[in-house]
C-alpha cells in the first residue's frame, strides 16, 4: 500500500453517534491521541532506519546539514552551558561550604555529573530547542507549500530525501556539540570556582571519581538523543497541514515532544545506568 501523510480517521456508518460512543471517545481520546502519536513516531523511525541501510545516502546533504546545525546552535549552546557551569558551581559550592566546610571534591563531583547527566541532557535539550524546532519549521513549510508533494511526484520519498540526511547529521552533531559543550561548561565552572571560592583550578580538575561507566552513560545518552530529536522534529514537520497555522503547530509539537522524549530517555537510561553500571 502506498504510504502517505496524514491518514484520515475512518467514519462511522450512521450519521448519529450514540452517547456511549461519544463518552468512550471523550475518555479514551487523550490515550488514543498519545498512542497514535507514538505509533506514528515509531513508523517514521522504522522507515528512517530502513532507508538508512537499504538506499543510497545523500552525503553532500548530510555535510550541509551538519554545518547548518552546528553553526546555528554553537553560540547558543556555549552561552547556556557556560552559565550552567557557573550556576552549578555556585550552588554546590555554597552548600558544600555550609554543610561540609570542604570544597576539595566539588570539581570531581561536577565532572562526574557533567558526564552522566548535565552534559548530554542539557545540550540535547538545547539542540531540541534550536534544531528540533528548526527542522519542524523547515519541513513544515515545505509541506504546506506543497514542495513535499512535488518531491513525491518525482520519486523522492520524503523520508529518504529529507529525513535520513538530517538524522545522520544530527546524530553526529549532537555528539560533537555535547563534547564541546562539556568542555565549555567545565571551563566556566573551573573559572567560577576560582573566582567565587578561591579554589585552585588544579584541585577542581579532579578525575578521581570518573569511571568507565560514566563514559558509557554519556555515549548512550548522546546517541539516543541524537536520534530522537531529529526524528521527532522531522515527523512533526511532515505532519503539518493547513498553511501558517500548521507550521506553527508543527514547531510547537516538535519542541514539546522532543523535550518529553529527552526526559523519558534520560529517565530510562539513568535508571538503566544506575542498575547495571553502578
Amino acid at each position: 500500500m502506498a504510504t502517505e501523510a496524514a491518514p484520515a480517521p475512518q467514519p462511522t456508518q450512521g450519521e448519529e453517534t450514540p452517547l456511549l460512543h461519544r463518552f468512550l471517545e471523550g475518555v479514551g481520546g487523550p490515550f488514543t491521541f498519545v498512542g497514535r502519536e507514538i505509533f506514528e513516531l515509531i513508523r517514521v523511525f522504522a522507515l528512517t532506519f530502513f532507508y538508512l541501510f537499504y538506499r543510497p545516502i545523500r552525503w553532500r546533504e548530510v555535510v550541509r546539514q551538519c554545518y547548518e546545525m552546528g553553526y546555528r546552535s554553537m553560540f547558543f549552546i556555549a552561552v547556556v552551558m557556560g552559565f550552567l557551569g557557573m550556576i552549578m558551581v555556585m550552588q554546590t559550592g555554597l552548600q558544600a561550604q555550609k554543610m561540609l566546610g570542604d570544597l576539595s571534591m566539588i570539581g570531581a563531583l561536577f565532572l562526574q555529573l557533567l558526564f552522566r547527566e548535565l552534559g548530554p541532557t542539557i545540550t540535547a535539550a538545547m539542540i531540541a530547542v534550536r534544531v528540533g524546532t528548526g527542522l519542524a519549521a523547515e519541513i513544515g513549510s515545505m509541506v504546506v507549500t506543497e514542495q513535499v508533494d512535488a518531491l513525491r511526484m518525482n520519486d523522492a520519498e520524503p523520508v529518504q530525501y529529507l529525513i535520513v540526511p538530517r538524522v545522520i547529521a544530527c546524530l553526529f552533531m549532537t555528539i560533537v556539540l555535547t563534547c564541546i559543550a562539556m568542555v565549555i561548561s567545565f571551563a566556566s565552572a573551573m573559572a567560577g570556582a576560582y573566582l567565587m571560592f578561591d579554589l585552585n583550578p588544579r584541585t577542581f580538575y579532579n578525575t578521581d571519581l570518573l569511571i568507565w561507566g560514566d563514559f558509557i552513560t554519556f555515549a548512550m545518552k548522546s546517541l539516543a538523543y541524537g536520534i530522537v530529536i531529529p526524528v521527532i522534529g522531522c515527523h512533526a514537520g511532515l505532519a503539518a497541514f493547513g498553511g501558517s497555522e500548521g507550521v506553527g503547530m508543527a514547531t510547537t509539537r516538535a519542541v514539546v515532544n522532543a523535550s518529553l522524549g529527552i526526559t523519558f530517555v534520560d529517565f530510562a537510561l539513568s535508571a538503566f545506568g544506575f542498575v547495571f553500571i553502578y
Binding site: F76, V79, V129, R130, T133, A136, A137, T145, S244
Partner: peptide
C-alpha cells in the same frame, strides 16, 4: 508560513537563553 516557523524557533531559543541567564 515560513516566518511563523522562524519566529517560533527564535522564541524558544531566546526563552531558553533567558532562563539560564
Amino acid at each position: 508560513a515560513v516566518g511563523v516557523g522562524r519566529a517560533v524557533n527564535s522564541a524558544v531559543v531566546a526563552s531558553a537563553v533567558s532562563i539560564f541567564v
